[in-house]
C-alpha cells in the first residue's frame, strides 16, 4: 500500500505539483522570454519612426511625438507639456530652439510667442505605428530587386535540388549496378567537405564559368546535397519494388517509372527536403557574399548586411527589412512545423 501511495504522489504532471514542476515551467517561461522576446522586440521596434527609435530608454510600443499644425506656421510643430511655472500642465508647440531656451506657442492662441527653458517640459507622445518604414523600403530602396533575387535563387535551386537529388536517390535505391555503393559513399563523403573549405576554389570555378554576380553562380553549387540524396534514398528504399516491376511489365520506360511512380510516392520525403532547401537557400550568406559582388545582384541577406554597414543611423529601415526577411521563414515554420521538426529528428540534418 505504501508503495502504491508513493507511486501516485510521485507521478509528475498529474496530482500534486512538486518543486521540479515549478522549476520546469519557470525554466521554460524564462526560455520563451529569451528565445522569442528578442524577435518580438525587433518586430515592435520596426514600427517605430526614426524619432521614436532614438528615444532612450526605449518604449515598448511604437510612439512618436505629437505634432500640431498651428495657423501661421508652415509645417506641423512638435507638442510639449510644460512641467512647472505658471503654465504647468499646458500643452505648447515648439517653434524653434535657441540654446537652452525654446520659443513656443499655444496652439489655441498662435499670436503670442512664449519662451520656455528646454529642460522644463516633456514631449507629448502618442502610440503610432510607422508603417512607412515598410512602404519606404519599397519606394526608396531596391527592396523589390533583392526580394526577387532571393526568391529566384531559392525557387530555382530548390526545384533543381529536388530533381537532381531524387534522380540520384532513385538510381541508388532501385538499381543494381557495379559501383553503386561506391557512388553512394562518394556522395556521403562530400559531407566532409563543408563549403567554407572550398570557398576559394569554388570561386575560381564560378569565375571560370563566368557566373560571378550571377544568381546561377549561387544556384549550381547548391543543387547537389549529400543530405538530400541520403534522405530520399532512405525513403525510396521503403517503396515496394513490385510496383516498379509491374510498370516494367506494362512497358513503361525507366524515366516514366521514375517520374510517374517513384517521385509521386516519395512526396513526403520530397516535401521535407523542399522545406530544408528553401531554408538553406533563403538564409545562405557566405557563399552569395563571395559570388555576388554587384549590389543589383544581392540577395536579401547580403542587402541587409551591406545596409547595416552603410546606414548605421537608418535603423528604422534596417529593422523593417530584417522583419521582412524573417517573415517568410516564420510563416513556413508556423505552417510546416511538424515536418521540419520530424525531418530533423529523423535525419539529423539542418
Amino acid at each position: 500500500m505504501a508503495n502504491i501511495a508513493k507511486m501516485l504522489t510521485a507521478t509528475r504532471g498529474r496530482g500534486r505539483w512538486d518543486w521540479t514542476d515549478w522549476a520546469s515551467y519557470g525554466y521554460l517561461i524564462l526560455g520563451v522570454c529569451i528565445m522569442f522576446g528578442p524577435v518580438l522586440w525587433l518586430a515592435a521596434s520596426s514600427l517605430k519612426s526614426e524619432s521614436g527609435l532614438s528615444e532612450y530608454p526605449p518604449s515598448l510600443l511604437p510612439t512618436e511625438q505629437v505634432r500640431v499644425s498651428v495657423p501661421g506656421y508652415a509645417s506641423p510643430l512638435p507638442l510639449f507639456t510644460i512641467d512647472a511655472g505658471e503654465r504647468a500642465g499646458k500643452q505648447l508647440a515648439e517653434i524653434r530652439r535657441i540654446g537652452i531656451q525654446a520659443q513656443m506657442v499655444d496652439p489655441a492662441d498662435p499670436k503670442a510667442v512664449i519662451r520656455v527653458p528646454v529642460d522644463g517640459r516633456t514631449k507629448v507622445m502618442r502610440v503610432h505605428a510607422a508603417w512607412d518604414n515598410y512602404t519606404d523600403l519599397i519606394a526608396k530602396f531596391n527592396f523589390g530587386r533583392y526580394l526577387w533575387n532571393t526568391v529566384f535563387i531559392t525557387t530555382i535551386a530548390t526545384v533543381l535540388t529536388l530533381l537532381v537529388n531524387s534522380m540520384a536517390a532513385f538510381a541508388l535505391s532501385k538499381y543494381r549496378f557495379s559501383g553503386r555503393d561506391a557512388v553512394f559513399l562518394i556522395m556521403l563523403a562530400t559531407l566532409m567537405i563543408p563549403p567554407t573549405i572550398v570557398l576559394v576554389p569554388n570561386y575560381l570555378i564560378i569565375a571560370t564559368l563566368g557566373l560571378t554576380s550571377n544568381p546561377w553562380g549561387v544556384i549550381w553549387p547548391a543543387v547537389a546535397t549529400p543530405t538530400g540524396v541520403f534522405m530520399l534514398r532512405q525513403y525510396m528504399l521503403t517503396l515496394p519494388d513490385d510496383l516498379i516491376e509491374a510498370a516494367r511489365m506494362d512497358n513503361a520506360s525507366e524515366w516514366r517509372i521514375y517520374w510517374r511512380i517513384v517521385l509521386p510516392l516519395s512526396a513526403p520525403a520530397l516535401a521535407v527536403l523542399a522545406i530544408f532547401s528553401v531554408m538553406w537557400r533563403w538564409n545562405e550568406f557566405l557563399w552569395p557574399m563571395v559570388v555576388l559582388s554587384r549590389s543589383e545582384s544581392f540577395t536579401l541577406q547580403l542587402a541587409l548586411n551591406s545596409f547595416q554597414g552603410e546606414l548605421t543611423t537608418a535603423w528604422n529601415y534596417l529593422l523593417a527589412m530584417t522583419v521582412l526577411t524573417l517573415l517568410p521563414v516564420t510563416v513556413v515554420f508556423l505552417v510546416l512545423q511538424k515536418y521540419i521538426t520530424q525531418g530533423i529528428a529523423s535525419a539529423g540534418v539542418k
Partner: peptide, 22 residues
C-alpha cells in the same frame, strides 16, 4: 542496372565540380 549511371550523373557531376575538384 547500368542505366542507373545516367540517373546519378547530374548529381555526381555537380559534386565533382563543386566539391572534389575544389
Amino acid at each position: 542496372g547500368r542505366l542507373g549511371w545516367l540517373f546519378v550523373a547530374p548529381n555526381l557531376a555537380v559534386f565533382a565540380l563543386f566539391s572534389f575538384l575544389p
